[in-house]
Write a protein that binds this DNA or RNA. Structure first.
Ligand code: FES
Ligand code: FES
Lengths: 157, 157
DNA sequence: ACATTCCATACTATTTTAGTCAAGATATAT
DNA sequence: ATATATCTTGACTAAAATAGTATGGAATGT
């Protein structure tokens, strides 16, 4: 079972994308600023997300990343898998051979747990998260900072 | 979220204990042999399990470890927690402060996931596992080897 | 031309894992 | 008493993973 900052960052970044990708592509620099994730690290994560065809990209000014499918069609588990964090709690990877080519005493337990986790994360899409009220509130707070900054920049003209 | 070989070993060893602690204490050497876990490593794990009062010990010949409570009263999650593997999927440890002292975008998601995992592992006791048929079958297989060895030793007298 | 953005690769400090090893304390059987 | 089985403690370590940083380039819009 692997669920570390890497996977959490990936989901957070994808959710940021889903929240902001109304029209124009979203540059990683924006996500980095809003979510407090190192730009270089984001680049590594998005390389994997792109290889897994969860996002597509556009280079040059005005470029950035876009979701490759509707947010409703991207379950959270797909993002985590794309990052190479598998949601498997067994030691054997489901093969049932981790002790001398036979299932260990607790194989079934970890299989059951893995299934529960998988079900949960497969049942929630980025679209579901976008429509949650607390997510919208947090996103507004994060955008608020940016908006303030833009307004101040405008007022300085 | 941490669930590694360490936690799985601990649960496996405790289940072995539950299966064999009918009367006499069970020495770690037996568990090591049956479950294929390094003896020294088991010693480290049982030091923690003892500090958490999940097991008690008896030294000297005929000594070993015993469950400190009925198997039915030891949920799997207690074993994992005793080993210092917490079943928390958040980054903030539930505090909701992982981004600039405010909850990050995905805080609720990881909270929900943590709760699911905890519920699952708290709802299964060692006693439950002992009474599962596939666990009994695997245990019989493991004991089978030992029994054969004992029989051969006897027949050589 | 130039700034912006993605793209790719290599590097690294720190931490964790999954142990090993050594020395000792304690209880039991003979 | 002595030998042996067993727990108890602490130090040590090789290998892997994490969470990044650093550097340089390639494409694209203005
Ligand atoms: S976890 Fe699957 S066989 Fe041990
Ligand atoms: S995971 Fe709780 S605030 Fe980010």
């Amino acid at each position: 079972m692997k669920l570390t900052t890497k996977g959490r960052y990936a989901v957070t970044a994808m959710l940021d994308l889903a929240l902001h990708a109304k029209d124009a592509p979203v540059p990683l620099a924006d996500i980095s600023r809003r979510q407090g994730i190192s730009l270089s690290y984001l680049e590594q994560l998005f390389a994997k997300l792109r290889r897994n065809e969860l996002v597509n990209s556009a280079r040059g000014p005005g470029g950035g990343y876009r979701l490759n499918r509707a947010a409703e069609d991207i379950p959270v588990v797909a993002v985590i898998n794309a990052i190479n964090e598998n949601v498997d709690a067994t030691r054997c990877g489901g093969l049932g051979n981790c002790q001398d080519n036979e299932p260990c005493l607790t194989h079934e337990l970890w299989m059951d747990l893995s299934e529960r986790i998988h079900e949960f994360l497969a049942g929630i899409s980025l679209g579901d998260l976008v429509s949650r009220r607390e997510v919208q509130a947090i996103s507004a707070r994060q955008d608020g900072r940016v908006v303030e900054r833009v307004l101040m920049a405008d007022s300085s003209l």
